[in-house]
């Protein structure tokens, strides 16, 4: 028993030494409240690490996440995980989007997960080892009155507002420790918000690579092209974190941008 465990420990170590030489990159999932950050983080974990594990609770009430939570040890392997994508994304539309974001768009060559070596001359480049950090939603104003509509008592609502404010500060502090940012926007909302513009400007100034995900494309009012138009200098990948639509393209963009 003990012996076997030790053997598998050595094996794990060997595997790690062979394949995971690169340190993992820390990817922060940022965006306004309710964009779907926790839903997306949970999906990433379910797909690549543990089907049972949730990093946090998703909720229609804004500022549900009020502490940043990190999940380590996620390995995205585009080739390996292709089957898994197909299984997980039973709701998804298999057609590649006909609207390429820009030159160098990762979706250009169709579904990159079927052909991970297209862009990468050498073995192993279709892999990305990462930690994901689900962060509290960033906002410029947090008002407890907004929570009353969801049935919270005044006390609860005020407490939530305070924690949400602390959450914003915490999310920003995490940035110092982060290698790449997934900026998640709700594609049914106007992308030209102060929050989005300020985050993007700041990421550019810090030199942190960004992938923008235009979320909730399962909703008929979603307009991901508006986000593409608003931020033409960035990768914008339309996704549905809820149904899994277009996730392979999103993962391919992550591997490309963050490794």
């Amino acid at each position: 028993m003990v012996r076997r465990r030790r053997t598998s420990g050595i094996l794990a170590w060997l595997l790690e030494a062979l394949f995971f030489k690169k340190r993992s990159v820390k990817i922060g999932i940022y965006g306004p409240p309710n964009a779907g950050k926790t839903t997306l983080t949970n999906r990433i974990i379910h797909t690549f690490a543990d089907e049972e594990e949730d990093v946090g609770t998703a909720s229609e009430i804004p500022h549900e996440t009020r502490r940043a939570v990190r999940r380590g040890g996620i390995l995205i392997d585009l080739k390996q995980n292709l089957k898994q994508f197909q299984r997980t994304n039973f709701n998804s539309n298999p057609q590649p989007l006909s609207d390429p974001t820009r030159n160098g768009d990762p979706t250009r060559n169709g579904d990159p997960s079927t052909n991970p070596s297209t862009k990468s001359g050498r073995k192993g480049r279709a892999k990305l080892k990462l930690d994901v950090v689900d962060t509290p939603g960033l906002a410029t104003k947090i008002d407890f009155h907004d929570f009353l509509a969801y049935g919270l008592r005044e006390e609860e609502a005020k407490q939530r507002a305070k924690e949400a404010t602390e959450g914003v500060i915490e999310a920003i502090k995490w940035l110092d420790d982060i290698d790449g940012v997934i900026l998640l926007m709700d594609a049914t909302q106007d992308p030209y918000t102060q929050t989005n513009v300020v985050i993007i400007g700041n990421m550019e100034a810090r030199g942190i690579p960004v992938v923008i995900a235009a979320n909730k494309i399962d909703l008929s009012s979603a307009a991901p092209q508006k986000i593409k138009k608003a931020f033409p200098q960035h990768f914008v990948i339309p996704i549905s974190a809820l149904t899994g639509e277009n996730m392979p393209e999103f993962y391919a963009a992550m591997v490309r941008r963050f490794r």
Binding site: L138, I142, D143, E154, K158, K162, A164, T165, I172, V198
Partner: peptide, 23 residues
Amino acid sequence: SLKIVSPGVYELNLDTLLGRRGI
């Protein structure tokens, strides 16, 4: 970077918070 307008109502200046000029 952070203003407490009244109890439970906060205004955050993301620009200064992100700009690391301190709180």
